[in-house]
Design a protein around this nucleic acid. Structure first.
Lengths: 111, 111
DNA sequence: AAGATACTGAAGCAACAACTTCAGTATTGT
DNA sequence: ACAATACTGAAGTTGTTGCTTCAGTATCTT
């Protein structure tokens, strides 16, 4: 379960929620416990844990239990997968843009 | 409504669905009508239109009605917004990675 | 003009998402 | 040992998604 390949659906889903992006922004600063993360969010601990599960699934966060505290840190795999996806699609997207530019300029010639 | 700034929530939400990503992949090849898009998807026209609405909201697709046909094309604004977001977060992410590398090597020194 | 085509709009429905509450279970501090 | 802390798990609620059906309305085509 730990090294499942990253599911792009889960990744986009994870990133689509503002609370989860807030958690990520928080973790960019430093690792934090669940309750510390919960503090500024105005939601219950339970809800935060649920968000964390989704972020872990997307490999954007890694957590580990130390004593009674669950320490949460950023994981890079998810973010790298996003960059990879974006890069892969960029080339196709660009090709298409070039093609349309062509079509357009041909239309200009033969209106 | 046309030039609303792009909402990152809508953007990620739009990209989080495989049917919608399939539509985008299709439109990278060439513009298409709603019914042409529907053909390989195995869902109703109505469902496709609903997906298109979400893609338009995210500025990933632009559609325009010509006669009785709605022609759908890729729009770049959404994709560019995604790249922008990724770029913006990359720097923060990198800073953090450096910091953790530091912390880690300090731990190595004082265990 | 009449039929075929290409959507459009409203309504409904099952599954899922983001919460909550409440009742635990470990760990830690005194 | 005992209380406080830091979660954990199950269950329930409310709203949103991704679909459907069905009944239109334009716009071709012949």
């Amino acid at each position: 379960m730990r090294d499942r390949p990253i599911d792009i659906n889960r990744l986009f889903h994870a990133l689509g929620d503002p609370t989860r992006r807030a958690i990520l922004d928080r973790l960019v600063e430093r690792p934090a416990s669940v309750s510390r993360l919960a503090e500024p969010l105005g939601i219950t601990l339970t809800a935060v844990v649920q968000h964390l599960q989704i972020l872990e699934d997307a490999r954007l966060v890694h957590t580990e239990k130390l004593g009674r505290v669950r320490v949460c840190r950023l994981e890079t795999a998810g973010f790298r997968a996003l960059e990879q996806w974006t890069r892969n699609h960029r080339t196709a997207w660009e090709r298409k843009l070039d093609r349309f530019a062509e079509l357009l300029s041909e239309e200009d010639k033969n209106p």
